[in-house]
């Protein structure tokens, strides 16, 4: 089974990362892999805010915006 390739941009960090994930992986799977708590971020998939249960597709650009900013 071939993997899918996606690009992840974490807002506030300089570099984008390219990641390989299993086919049918969801955004929630990606967040677990990155050790990101869904309560503290918003995810944009190819520019659109989406739910974490959406399945990823090959070539997706995923932006992760941290929303917990205060002290």
């Amino acid at each position: 089974m071939t993997c899918i390739k996606i690009v992840v941009k974490q807002v506030g960090k300089r570099h984008k990362r390219e990641l390989r994930l299993a086919p049918h992986a969801t955004i929630a799977d990606l967040l677990r892999k990155l050790d990101q708590n869904r309560e503290t971020i918003v995810v944009r998939r190819n520019g659109k805010i989406v739910v974490e249960e959406e399945r990823l597709s090959d070539g997706d650009l995923i932006e992760i915006l941290p929303i917990v900013t205060g002290g």
Binding site: G12, V42, I49, L65, P66, I67, V68, G70
Partner: peptide, 21 residues
Amino acid sequence: PEKEVALYALLRGLEVHLAVC
């Protein structure tokens, strides 16, 4: 919830500061 307030601001296209203190 904080996440819903953030989504409200982002989905309405409001200009907000999202940096961490």
